[in-house]
Structure formats: C-alpha cells, structure tokens
C-alpha cells in the first residue's frame, strides 16, 4: 500500500444509530394530540348526552357529577357538547390543513424548482392573495355561499394555501441549490422525477412541521369564524360557536365559556409543543449531517 493509501486509512467515519428524539415537551404535545383524536373518534359512544338535547338539567348549573362542566343557557350538558365538538373541530381543521399543505406544497415545489418567469408570476399572485386580510375574505366568501362545514374547510384551505406555498418554495430553493440535483439534471432526469425522487423526500420534514403549525392556526381561525357566526351552522357543538352563544350570559355561569375555550387552548398548546420539538429535531438532523463526518 502506498503512503497515500495509508493516510487515507484514517479517513473513516463512525456509524451512528439514529432514533426519533423528541424533547419531553414534544412527547407531551404528541400525547395531547393523540388523546384529542381518540376523543373525536370515540366520543359519540360514551358522551353522556346528545349535543342538541336541551334541558338535561337546569340552565346554568355549576359543575357536578352529572354535569362535569355544568349546563348552558338551554340546559344542555357542556361536557358532552365539548366532547362531541371534538369531531367537527378536528375534522375541519385537519381536512383544511391537509388540503392547504398538499396544494401549497405542490405549488411551492414547482415554483421553487422552475425559478423562471412562471415562478415570478406565481409568486406575485401568491403575494396578492396573501395581502387580503384572511378574516375579511373568509367572511365574504362564507356569507356569499352560505354556512356549511365543507365550505368552511375549502375556504380555510384556500386562504392557507398561498402561505404554505411560500414555505414550500423556500424549502425547495434550499434543496435545489445542492449538487445532487445537478447530478440528476446531468443524467437527464425528467422534472417530475426530480421533484418526486430528489426534492420531495428532502422537504417532508419541513412540510410536516408546517402542517402542525398551520393546524394550530386553523383551529384558532375556525374558532374565530364560529365565534362570529360564520362557521359551522348551529346546533353543531363547534367550540367557537359555543363560546359565542355563551358569551351573553357569562355573568350567570362561566362554564359554558371556559370549557370549550380550555378545550381549544389545550389542543393548540399540544400542537405547538409537538411542532416546536419536531422542528428542532429536523434542524439538528440537518446540522448533524453536515458536521458529523468531519
């Protein structure tokens, strides 16, 4: 062996095991999300009362064994309504966010990859749509077409898509400047092949985090729409709507306001904790990949 080969012998890397390492807060957030999903799926099986059933007890009763969160102005059981409201809230949220992430992701990746006049024009359009305040546009659209669960979903998805597209495009730009993309181009790979094989796997981490963050925004936004009366139609036990209905009588009993508010807040906190931890993990993976083998 020549001396140069010998020297290269010291150029060996150590192999390391890679596991998913979220922080404690991240696990907590994940657990919270899981609990909510379970409640959404199974709630109708074990909630003590139906959502629309009035006068299950006297109006504005306080907390008791029969009514853990008391009753509202129509005597409906707040606990049941909160539990049963989980399904419409989670469905609307995740459906809207999923649509937005898929659509926005596709647009962002294509624009970020092309980087020609299509990209310039596309980004201008994205900027223009973003410049309309979300709430205003949502109110306009929903009042134009009517309150329905799926309309709210589509509207929210439409409003979030350009914002997701921006994030996806930025992530794509980061990936596209790498030489392995040039290597694929030199091989003559098709645009579709490059987007699917080379770009997409490298932005999934960021898009997952974006999904989580957008979900948190979506819950608050949909809640705000419900609060203003532009969300799912009553008597859907949607939390924002419940808070609106309960607001006028807040001096009588705070339970009908606090319970759905807390439900919303805890879910959003859980999602944020999870998203934070996930994004730090992804950052670290990127850093490690660059510095590990030095």
């Amino acid at each position: 062996m020549s001396t140069t080969e010998l020297a290269a012998g010291s150029d060996k890397a150590r192999v390391t095991r890679r596991g998913i390492r979220l922080s404690a807060a991240g696990w907590l957030g994940g657990a919270i999300i899981l609990v909510y999903v379970l409640v959404a799926l199974t709630g109708s099986l074990w909630a003590p009362y139906e959502a629309a059933k009035i006068l299950t007890g006297a109006p504005f009763e306080g907390a008791s064994l029969a009514h853990p969160f008391g009753t509202d102005n129509l005597g409906r059981d707040v606990f049941s309504r909160v539990v049963l409201g989980t399904r419409p809230v989670l469905t609307m949220t995740f459906a809207a966010t999923l649509l937005a992430v898929v659509a926005g992701g596709l647009i962002g990746v294509v624009l970020g990859y092309l980087r020609n006049w299509v990209d310039e024009v596309g980004m201008r359009i994205v900027d223009i749509v973003i410049s309309i305040p979300t709430l205003v546009l949502a109110l306009l659209i929903i009042s134009a077409v009517g309150n329905s669960l799926w309309l709210v979903v589509v509207t929210v998805a439409f409003l979030f898509t350009p914002r997701v597209a921006r994030v996806a495009r930025a992530a794509t730009l980061n990936v596209v400047t790498n030489d392995y993309i040039s290597a694929a181009l030199a091989r003559g790979e098709s645009t579709l092949s490059i987007c699917l094989r080379e770009i997409l796997p490298n932005i999934t981490g960021i898009m997952l985090v974006e999904f989580a963050i957008r979900s948190a925004f979506a819950i608050i936004f949909i809640g705000s729409l419900g609060f203003l009366g532009f969300g799912a139609p009553p008597p859907t036990p949607e939390w924002g709507l419940m808070i609106n209905e309960a607001r006028a009588n807040a001096s009588n009993s705070l339970w009908p306001v606090l319970a759905p508010a807390a439900a919303m807040a805890v879910l959003v906190i859980g999602i944020n904790l999870f998203a934070d931890s996930l994004s730090r993990l992804i950052d670290r993976q990127g850093q490690n990949a660059a510095t590990e083998a030095k």
Partner: peptide
C-alpha cells in the same frame, strides 16, 4: 441529449456535503 451521450459523459462535483441526496 440522447441516452447514450448522457451515459458517456459524467460529472463529479466539488462539495461532498451537497453532491449526494441525504435521504
């Protein structure tokens, strides 16, 4: 370029950190 031409000409890049797909 034709497949044959693309096959016969290959390129290796400068930066080892960015020339291989990390995934």
């Amino acid at each position: 370029r034709s497949l044959a031409l693309r096959q016969k000409i290959q390129i290796i890049f400068q930066n080892p950190d960015s020339s291989l797909n990390p995934r």
